[in-house]
Design a protein around this nucleic acid. Structure first.
Lengths: 218, 218
DNA sequence: GTCTATACAGGGATAGAC
DNA sequence: GTCTATCCCTGTATAGAC
C-alpha cells in the first residue's frame, strides 16, 4: 500500500514504462482526501462523480484518469480509512488503557468506528450492500479479503488475551473471533439507525461473556 | 397491517371517499408479489421500476399509482417478507424442535433468514444502507420501528427462556436482546459475503455463552 | 499526461392525454 | 388507472485540446 511512496499503483499514472510519477500520485491522494470530505458532507448517494469533481474543481471525467470506476474510488476511500484507523489504533496502544471493564478493547474498537464521520460509516454499509449484489465481484473480493484479515487480527488478539487469562479457555477462538466482529458490525448498525440507543451495555455484556467467571472478587 | 383485508391503506386506491376497493388492493398485492420475484432474479440494483413494470406488463409510471416512490415499494416488500416470516415462525412453533443445541431458537432464526432468497437478504441490507443516508427519513423510521419491535420480541423470548432456566440469570436481558440481534445481523452479513463461511459455530457459541454453565452432565 | 467537452444509455420523478 | 413524453440526474465512454 504505497500511500506516500512514489511507486505507481495499478493504474493511476504513467505509461507504465517510466519511473515513479510523484505528481500523479500526489494528485490521486488529493482526490482521495477531497472525496472523503465530500462523503462526510453529502453521504454516499449524494457523492456523485460530478459532485466530487466539482468539489475538487475538476470535471467528473478527470476522476477516471485515477480511478477506473466510481466503485474503485469508493473502495480506495475505504482502504484509506482502514489505514488511518490502523495508525490510530497503534497510537492508542501506547496510551494507558485499563479501566477494568474493557479487557479486550472492544469498546475502543467501537470508539474507533464512531470516530469516523457518520457519513463514512454509512459508506461502508452501502459498499457492503453493493458487494452483496450480483456482478460486483471487485467489491465482493475486497470485503472478503477485509473480513478474513479482520478475523485474523481478532483471533490473534483473543489468543493473546487467553494466554493472559482474560478470556475463558473453553472457547473455540475462531468462532469467537467471527462472533465478535459480527456483533460489533450489528451493534454499529443499530447505533447508526438510532444514535440515541445505548449499545455499550451490550458491548460490556459481550466482554463479560467472553471473560472467565470471577470467583466473586468484589 | 391489512394484508388480506379490503380496508384501503394510506393511499393505494380510490378517491378516498368510497368504501373498500378490492380490485385496487388486489392489484397492489399483485405488484408486490411480482416485485419480490423480480428481486429474487436480478437483485436490488437490477430491479428498476421499469424492470418491475415490464415483468408485470405495465409501464413504470403505473406503479406509482400504488407506491409513491421506489423506496416505498421496496419497504412494502420488506413488510410483506416480515409478515411471511412471522407466519412461518408460528408454523414452526407447532413442530417438534429439541435437538438440545438450539435452546433459544437462534439457529432456526437464521434458517429463517436463509430461507429467503439471497437477493432478498441483500435487499434488506441495501435498504438499511439507504436508511442510513441523510434524507431518507421514511426508511429510517421504518427500520427504527422494526428494530425496536425485534428487540421487544427477543427480549420476551429471553425472559421466557430465563424462567425456563435455559438462560443465565445474571444477564441484563435488554442488553442481551440487542446483542443477539446484532450478532445475527453481523453473521448474516459475513455469510452473504462468503457462503462458504460456516457461521454455525459462532451461533452455537453465542447460545452457550448465554446458557447457564452445565455442571458437567455428559 | 492531464483534463475538458460531449455523447450515450439508463435511472426516478412527473405532467397531461385518454 | 394507465399510458406516453419529458425532465434532470447518474455512471460510463470517447475524442481531442494542450
Amino acid at each position: 500500500m504505497p500511500s506516500e511512496s512514489d511507486a505507481p499503483t495499478d493504474r493511476a499514472t504513467g505509461p507504465g514504462s517510466r519511473g515513479p510519477y510523484p505528481k500523479g500520485v500526489r494528485r490521486r491522494q488529493e482526490i482521495l482526501d477531497r472525496t472523503i470530505e465530500v462523503f462526510a458532507d453529502v453521504g454516499f448517494e449524494g457523492a456523485s462523480l460530478r459532485a466530487v469533481g466539482e468539489a475538487i474543481g475538476v470535471s467528473h471525467a478527470a476522476l477516471r484518469r485515477y480511478f477506473d470506476t466510481r466503485e474503485e474510488l469508493f473502495l480506495e476511500v475505504l482502504r484509506e480509512k482502514d489505514r488511518q484507523a490502523m495508525a490510530e489504533a497503534r497510537g492508542r496502544d501506547h496510551d494507558d488503557h485499563d479501566d477494568g471493564s474493557d479487557v479486550l478493547g472492544l469498546a475502543r474498537s467501537l470508539d474507533a468506528y464512531a470516530s469516523q464521520v457518520p457519513g463514512l460509516m454509512a459508506l461502508r454499509h452501502s459498499m457492503v450492500a453493493r458487494a452483496l449484489e450480483a456482478g460486483n465481484e471487485h467489491s465482493r473480493a475486497f470485503f472478503l479479503e477485509r473480513y478474513a484479515a479482520l478475523r485474523g487480527e481478532v483471533l490473534s488478539t483473543l489468543t493473546l488475551a487467553r494466554a493472559a487469562g482474560v478470556v475463558r479457555d473453553d472457547l473455540p477462538l475462531e468462532a469467537a473471533a467471527t462472533l465478535v466482529i459480527a456483533t460489533l458490525d450489528g451493534l454499529s448498525t443499530q447505533w447508526l439507525l438510532d444514535p440515541g440507543l445505548d449499545i455499550r451495555p451490550s458491548m460490556v455484556l459481550l466482554e463479560q461473556l467472553l471473560t472467565p467467571p470471577q470467583p466473586h472478587v468484589g
